[in-house]
Each structure stands twice: as structure tokens, then as C-alpha cells.
């Protein structure tokens, strides 16, 4: 009886070690594209199983030429096009030093301008335009440029029509 218990314990231990080794071998990569699609198969014709965001971590299951089989942190498994991942985590937005600088500077800034992403020029840019004598026509042009949005689906459709990116194969 004791012997059987020992054997069982050894087997459990071995399975645990094997599982741990397997997990340790699974390389971690990060989504490096602004957005990316996880597909059920390794072609762009296969259905999308999940939308991925920049910086998301992925565990590599298998590599096959231009496509990688990966598992997300939520456990969803699928295929992603190789140029959409990188080995290092993208910095994203401000790096640590820039964020630190922003923190320091904000203690100085009593009035914060409107976000540049909103429609209309920044308060500071508007003030610059006044001082530099920029015409209303040119201000409107930069304003339109700032506000110009193209949905991701349109960019994907454009790439697909040109057989570019993951749509090349």
C-alpha cells in the first residue's frame, strides 16, 4: 500500500515537472501592431476568434513560417500573422522617463490645454497660430487633419484588396 502511494506520488511529481517545463518552454511574445486578429487557422480566410490589442502578451504554441499559433492570457488559442508580434513589449504612449517629466511639468502647469485629439486646435497651437500669423484656411486644414479618422476595418479592407500583410497568402 505504502509502495503504491510512493509510486503515485512520484508519478504526480513527474507529471507536474513535465507540465512546468512545457509551460516554461512556451515563449512569450507581445502584440506589436496597433490592432491584430487572432484566427482559427493560419490563413487570412480563417474566421477571427479574437481581436488583440497592442502590448497584449501571447504564449507561443507553434511556429509555422509566417504564422504563429498562440494562446492569449485569457486562454484563447489561435493563429496570428508573424509581423504583428515582437519579442519585447512595446513601450506604448509615454516611456517611464517621459511620464515622469510630464508629472513634474504638470505641477508647474496651472492651465492644461484641451486634448489634441478633440476637434479644434490646441489652446497652445491656436495661440502660436495667432503669433505666427497663420491664416484661418491653414488652421482649418490642420484641424481637419487632426480630426481625420479612418476605421480599422477600412484599413484592413484596403490591405486585403492589395493582398498585403496577412492577406498576402
Amino acid at each position: 500500500m505504502n509502495h503504491r502511494h510512493t509510486l503515485l506520488a512520484v508519478m504526480v511529481f513527474m507529471v507536474t515537472v513535465m507540465t512546468m517545463t512545457d509551460a516554461a518552454l512556451g515563449e512569450t511574445l507581445y502584440v506589436s501592431a496597433k490592432s491584430a486578429q487572432l484566427r482559427s487557422g493560419k490563413t487570412s480566410l480563417d474566421p477571427v476568434v479574437a481581436g488583440l490589442k497592442l502590448g497584449e502578451s501571447l504564449e507561443v504554441v507553434k511556429r509555422e513560417e509566417r504564422w504563429l499559433q498562440v494562446r492569449t492570457a485569457k486562454g484563447v488559442q489561435g493563429w496570428i500573422y508573424a509581423t504583428h508580434v515582437s519579442e519585447s513589449k512595446p513601450a506604448g504612449g509615454d516611456n517611464e522617463l517621459a511620464a515622469l517629466g510630464k508629472g513634474f511639468r504638470q505641477t508647474e502647469a496651472s492651465s492644461v490645454t484641451a486634448s489634441a485629439g478633440a476637434r479644434g486646435l490646441d489652446k497652445a497651437s491656436e495661440s502660436y497660430a495667432n503669433r505666427a500669423g497663420i491664416t484661418q484656411q491653414h488652421r482649418d486644414a490642420v484641424d481637419r487633419m487632426t480630426a481625420n479618422k479612418i476605421p480599422d476595418e477600412d484599413i484592413q479592407a484596403f490591405l486585403k484588396a492589395g493582398r498585403l500583410g496577412e492577406y498576402a497568402e
Binding site: 517629466g101 513634474f104 481637419r144
Partner: peptide, 30 residues
Amino acid sequence: IGGLLPIGYEEEQTIGQAIALQVVARYGGV
């Protein structure tokens, strides 16, 4: 220290927009 540290994205947007105004003005508009 704030001045010596790198410029953050929010500030980069302000700078980018101001430079864009001059590029448009100097190169015949959009």
C-alpha cells in the same frame, strides 16, 4: 528635472500641431 526629461505624448501633440501649421502655411496649403 521636468525640463531635462523627455517630452511626453500630450506635449508632443501640441508641438506637432504647431509645426504642422507652419508646414501647411509655408507649402501652399493642403
